[in-house]
Design a protein around this nucleic acid. Structure first.
Lengths: 352, 352
DNA sequence: CAAGGTTGCTAATTCGTATGAGTAGCTGAT
DNA sequence: ATCAGCTACTCATACGAATTAGCAACCTTG
């Protein structure tokens, strides 16, 4: 067993170099010039540092400096997925990359997970997040209440994904869906589509409303038409939806939500509908690999970039260089043309 | 922009509860009973904690020598893989699971990564690990020096994977390869094999030597035979290896390293060797999904269990209930019989 | 009623570092 | 001889929590 050696501290160096701890600190922090400490003394200090293999104690530095270089990552479920194909992985890759770059460490809050498997900010009544300098919140669709409370406590954090409601004023980084809709509608218009259907979720919260608003704006701008938007919950979708869309003369369909896309893919297949020959389809969401709609044209969230920017924005927030209502929209990748085709002249007959 | 309020500390609670900081500390650290502090006072303290949303300052706690509930995870490369099929993932899943169970949080050390992409313990002239109560070290094949130094500074940590050399005395959890070799050799003996070849790496460090030693012990115990072991680097393997093995009358082959297995799978295919008809093969290692040897019989490290145990062992180490030379061997899963067949009576002819 | 014990706390110190406020010793100007 | 002004430092304190020693007030026992 190795000899018990306490890690050397500044006072050990000081003794060896024949100065005081203060002087060591001054030399090591580059304040030597300002305090007019001659080169000879500095050299003695540095020699002692080398000899004793001194490294600063982070806890002491943090305590004194007020920052600890820890950035929290709050998720409401485990970070390490059992299945290798995980939706959150790209975000986390980006988060880790940027943490490396900015020389901060990441704290994964596992202690906050309750027996129900859900991780809460205020677990056991306390806000464990506070042990980190700030936090990035990932995949928090709910818990508006906790978030508002967190913000009211002046805790610095950044969301990934657009927020609505009371938390809309909180800092976030999100994909730029307005630009995304241009990237979707322009190729459709170019392919000859003149009437485009829109299938949205029933829950019309800010992100959904904003997406639909962008749709209408771009449709108008491009001189296109569209029927009334359909707001249908995924579990209420059926073949009749397609009939209706085709009957009203739409030749392309935008789907707001990837769950709806998954179900429609199954329905289309069962009904013998050929996508995109009979109907061009673009999903305004990122479809998971396991979905049958996986190959459909879709908007891909720049997940990795979002992770990276979240960390950067958080650090800027901590430095006070940006306000705590800061929002940032990141460009999305253009959709593939997989399910964008030229429209048919006459509507197809589909089996029911 | 709202002013950032200073995080509450114990003295703030103390004031609110009408006691001193010392009392708050005693209550919060469960030493209240020992110091005979009545329930009423404890309740007042807890109420104040809740009201002010107090969370202990990690840096201060660490500095003083207390526990902060942070467990470090040190890896020498990023933990979030870009490719979905990641070797380290199961370890991390286990680590996170156990962290949830034991109510501790995880710190991923990203700040320690240098420009070369390698993460060091003593990076940038500081040992960031000290912020955590202890750490789990994953996949550290190198940096013997840093580890010995870390241990000599009495920092508590646990390895995953067997260690050799100077760090062999440090705490680790590892797969039980001795038992694993019994699980490999017994089915082979039962299938009728009498002479079994052994292909090892050229680098004979402790783990490799131990594996080979177990091989010899079990071969002797089961009354089997084997030729001289082959110690060949993966990139020097060729079809001649198979010729030699078959010529000396071996009917089964154990391969120490998964890289060698991958290359041998390619060579066998090219040479028209039918595995396992012509030669039974078992890999004494876990073969990655992308390898052509992926389907071969192999020893699977209980990676998730290793992750879990590593956290548990570390916590016990912190509690002082186990010595800091503690080793733990975990049972491996029995190999599949995919490439274990009955031996041929006469050696097959293979093309070169 | 004095000695001894228990209860319920508090005061003071410690961890290692950073930093503002000194200060001893010297030079040079008045 | 005095004093400003510099150089080259040192001193003392703060950061927030944990811990040990101590102490006043009350209670028990002989």
């Amino acid at each position: 067993m190795a000899k018990r050696t306490r890690a050397p501290r500044q006072s050990d160096i000081a003794r060896l170099a024949g100065v005081t701890q203060s002087t060591v600190s001054l030399v090591l922090n580059g304040r030597a010039a300002a305090e007019s400490i001659p080169q000879a003394t500095q050299d003695r200090v540095h020699a002692a540092v080398k000899e004793l293999q001194y490294v600063p104690n982070v806890a002491a530095t943090s305590l004194r400096g007020g920052r600890n270089g820890l950035i929290g990552v709050h998720t409401f479920e485990p970070v390490f997925p059992v299945t290798s194909d995980d939706y959150y992985n790209p975000f986390l890759v980006g988060i880790e990359e940027q943490a490396v770059e900015l020389k901060v460490d990441l704290v994964l809050f596992a202690s906050t997970q309750g027996d129900d498997g859900i991780r809460r900010i205020y677990a056991n009544g306390a806000n464990r997040l506070r042990l980190a300098d700030g936090a990035v919140m990932l995949g928090m669709e709910q818990n508006e209440e906790e978030l508002v409370r967190l913000a009211s406590e002046q805790y610095p954090f950044v969301f990934i994904g657009r927020r609505d409601g009371a938390s809309a004023q909180l800092p976030y980084v999100a994909p730029d869906y307005h630009q995304a809709l241009a990237l979707v509608l322009e190729p459709l218009a170019e392919a000859g589509h003149r009437r485009i259907a829109y299938l949205g979720e029933t829950a019309r919260r800010n992100p959904q409303e904003a997406r639909h608003e962008s749709f209408r704006a771009h449709v108008a701008r491009l001189g296109l038409g569209s029927g009334d938007p359909l707001f249908i919950a995924p579990d209420e979708l059926n073949a009749e939806v397609f009939h209706g869309i085709l009957r009203e003369g739409s030749t392309a369909l935008l789907i707001e939500n990837h769950d709806s896309a998954t179900i429609l893919a199954a329905i289309a297949q069962a009904a013998g509908l050929d996508i995109p020959r009979d109907l061009s389809v673009v999903v305004l969401d990122t479809v998971p690999d396991v979905s049958p709609a996986h190959t459909w044209s879709q908007i891909r969230m720049p997940r990795r970039a979002l992770g990276r920017r979240a960390i950067s924005v958080l650090m800027e927030l901590l430095d006070g260089t940006i306000p705590n209502t800061y929002h940032e929209l990141l460009p999305v990748e253009p959709p593939s043309t997989a399910t964008i085709a030229s429209p048919h002249t006459s509507p197809p007959a589909i089996s029911t």
